[in-house]
Design a protein around this nucleic acid. Structure first.
Lengths: 225, 225
DNA sequence: ATAGAACATTATGTATACAAGTTGTACATA
DNA sequence: TATGTACAACTTGTATACATAATGTTCTAT
């Protein structure tokens, strides 16, 4: 029987670089080079190049021949694209694949959204982000179509980067997110899937607007983006 | 100013192999090897490996370490996945991006659908396929979102392969396709975009069912798929 | 001081050498 | 004959050497 191993150096390099990009440790528009990555990972150029090639295809890197490698930026237009895809996929998933969603897990999320206190400081803020991601991931995990699943994974990475670039979320948006998530989760628990999908659509519009305004404020401070 | 060249050996190899897969000259489940591709292309392993890596990511190839490379198959489940994505993207594109669609070109397609005679033999059948592809491509080209555009491109390749594997389309389905295309095109020309989108949804269901039955018949003849 | 050419540096693109695992075959052995 | 073992012939994974192009620097000439 065939087995596809994924502990190769190429795969390790891919995971490593991808993580650095996702967390913006490799910042948008930052220049990289194969030799730098090679030294950092302690391996040869070949697996590094293969990892870079994969990330280029995912849109996270761009290679300029003989010039270098640059981490893809996230612009206002990208925010629209990211949320357009989310708005297409996430309500669709609720409407079409809700039978695959674990109601037990959904119940736990519902409780968290109802009971969660306002985040205090950095640690709590990270908890909030993680809760947010896990909630949407729970829903998207029910998607059975590989093509859409893969697209969703790409978007989740971009969304992760976007949040880091946007800066600290304001408390009011956190509170609203909790409320909107609770509405979605409760609709799911009641089997009101169409209602859940509609609530998701509204939630994503609000999230997008919040991200846009935060990114605009951030970029006006930083000068350019 | 940065320029991304795409005339590299790696890119040529990618185009070449991808074409061979799309036309099923490299048949589904066929085994390949780097050395074979290297000889066939007359280049070294490195650009071949990079091309293969890209195609693995696109789902057209699978590499089994130390064992070889296999061309991805298309199963009944894949047909459902392909048409699920099409059913999600194409009506959405009509509803959302119709302002980007060239009505002049749409008019030409409409005329073709109304006037096109039934295909006679192989050459005419190829014309029909090309017309079909071009029509859907015209619509999908209006999509502005890179993520969705790329997904659509992947799906178009799979659809191309699927048609080859399915065997010769029966005349009645060709006639129906012409009619359904004409309805979509005319609705577009009348600015009835919601109607066009609905007609597209129906058309895709019919196309999927036709593809499924043809593939079933084909696979029952061929034994396995 | 400034402009331009030669050059050193560094980048990726490509080719090749070597490492390591898988598979099938031939052969020895019971 | 059947079976297991050693080995030869593949495969891809990884490292490295070389080719080529872009860039910044330095030195020279005006």
């Amino acid at each position: 029987m065939p087995k596809e191993q994924e502990n190769s150096l190429q795969s390790q390099a891919y995971q490593y670089i991808r993580q650095k990009i996702a967390t913006c440790e490799y910042a948008p528009n930052q220049m990289l080079s194969e030799s730098q990555l090679r030294d950092e990972l302690g391996i040869s150029r070949t697996p590094v190049r293969e990892a870079v090639s994969r990330l280029v295809q995912e849109g996270l890197l761009t290679v300029f021949p003989k010039r270098g490698i640059v981490v893809s930026g996230i612009s206002i237009g990208d925010v629209h694209k990211i949320f357009e895809v989310r708005s297409l996929l996430e309500p669709y998933t609720l409407r079409t694949y809700h039978n695959n969603i674990s109601l037990e897990e959904m119940k736990e999320f519902s409780d968290s959204f109802h009971n969660h206190a306002l985040p205090c400081e950095d640690t709590c803020l990270q908890d909030f982000y993680q809760l947010d991601d896990a909630f949407h991931a729970l829903i998207m995990r029910s998607l059975e179509n590989d093509y859409l699943q893969e697209l969703s994974a790409r978007i989740q990475t971009q969304n992760f980067r976007l949040r880091i670039l946007s800066g600290k979320t304001i408390d009011s948006r956190i509170r609203d997110t909790m409320i909107e998530h609770a509405q979605i989760a409760d609709a799911c628990l009641n089997g009101e899937w169409e209602q859940a999908a509609t609530a998701m659509e509204i939630h994503l519009i609000h999230s997008r607007n919040s991200a846009l305004s935060m990114l605009l404020k951030q970029s006006s401070i930083a000068g350019i983006l």
